[in-house]
Structures are given as C-alpha cells and as structure tokens.
C-alpha cells in the first residue's frame, strides 16, 4: 500500500512540476516546492481520501506550501537575490525562435500579483475547473472569476505593451 502510494504520486510529478513552475518561475525553486509537496504528502498520506482525485489533493498541498513560503519571503523582504550564484536555471528551455516570446510571457507572469497569478496558472495552464480552484484556494467561485479576468486583462496589457500580442503560436 505505501509502495502504491509512492508510485501514484511519482506519476503526478510532471504535472506538479509544471504547476510549480507556473507559480514561481524559477525552475530549481519550483522543484524544491515539488519536493516539499511530495514529502508532506507522504507524511499526510493518512489524510488522503482515496475517493477524491490524487492530483487535486497534491495541488492543494503544493499551493499551501508555496503560499506560506511566499508570505515568509515577503515578510523578510527578500525573494531572490541569487544573481551571483551562477546556478539559476531559466524556468523553460525554449527553442530559439520562441525565446523572446517565452521570456516576455514569464516576465509578464512575474509582474502579476500572486493571487491573480495562481488563479491564472490553475485555470489556464493546469486546466482546473473554477470549483476545484475555489476549493484549493478557499474562496468563492466568484472570487476566482474576478481574479482570473483581472489576471488575463493585466497579462494582455503587459504583452501588448511589449508588442508580443501577435505571438505566433506553432503547435
């Protein structure tokens, strides 16, 4: 049974990593977040309701860790001043011609208020339902909708200012 649980949470790691990168941008910080999330989920395994989706439960754990770290960091007034470390990885390893657009999008995301960013990442990237996002964050669906539409409007504006709104999307 514990072995099964490990296998199941490992299967969710790719999605957790994407979610974490969407939330915090820096790839190694994002993986730290995923690591904390996995460790905590093992400790809290007894609290997991097997009738509910595992991914949503893990998302909620990860998001809680992120919020508490983020709060702590903003209290200390230092988020990242690690430019001299030379080990920072970009959150994405894009193809060359996509480089600029991708950079602009990640920069624009960094400018969003945290509350808007997380809703945008949950809905647009992780494709959660409004209800799932509302449960994870602990706010009414109406709040999700207003944060989402503000996030999208801000992002749109930021990208438009940078002249990348006509980003070519090659799929």
């Amino acid at each position: 049974m514990p072995q099964d649980f490990s296998t199941r949470i490992i299967a969710e790691v790719p999605h957790l990593r994407r979610f974490a990168r969407g939330l915090c941008g820096d790839a190694s910080l994002a993986d730290d977040l995923v690591q904390d999330c996995l460790e905590r989920s093992l400790k809290k395994q007894h609290l997991y309701d097997i009738h509910r989706p595992l991914r949503a439960w893990l998302y909620a754990i990860l998001r809680n860790i992120h919020v508490s770290q983020w709060r702590r960091a903003s209290q200390f007034g230092v988020m990242t001043d690690v430019s001299d470390l030379g080990e920072q990885q970009p959150s994405v390893a894009p193809l060359q011609e996509q480089n600029l657009s991708i950079m602009l999008i990640t920069q624009a995301l960094d400018k969003l208020p945290q509350q808007q960013r997380e809703v945008l990442v949950m809905i647009s990237l992780e494709e959660m339902s409004y209800k799932e996002a509302a449960e994870i964050i602990g706010v009414p669906i109406g709040t999700i909708m207003s944060r989402l539409s503000r996030a999208r409007a801000t992002l749109h504006q930021l990208l438009e200012e940078r002249g990348t709104i006509h980003l070519r999307v090659v799929k």
Partner: peptide, 26 residues
C-alpha cells in the same frame, strides 16, 4: 491565445523524466 502561450512555455516539463531527487522524495 494566452492559454496556448502558457502551455507553450510550460508544457515541456511534462515530457521530462522525473528527477532522481523527486523520485527519492516520493
């Protein structure tokens, strides 16, 4: 367009193998 752009930026991580330290943490 935003949704597609976000996927374009972040989806590559879905294809990456699970790093050993995360596998160990699980």
């Amino acid at each position: 367009q935003q949704n597609t752009a976000l996927h374009q930026v972040y989806d590559n991580v879905l294809q990456e193998p699970v790093p050993p330290r995360l596998r160990a943490a699980a």
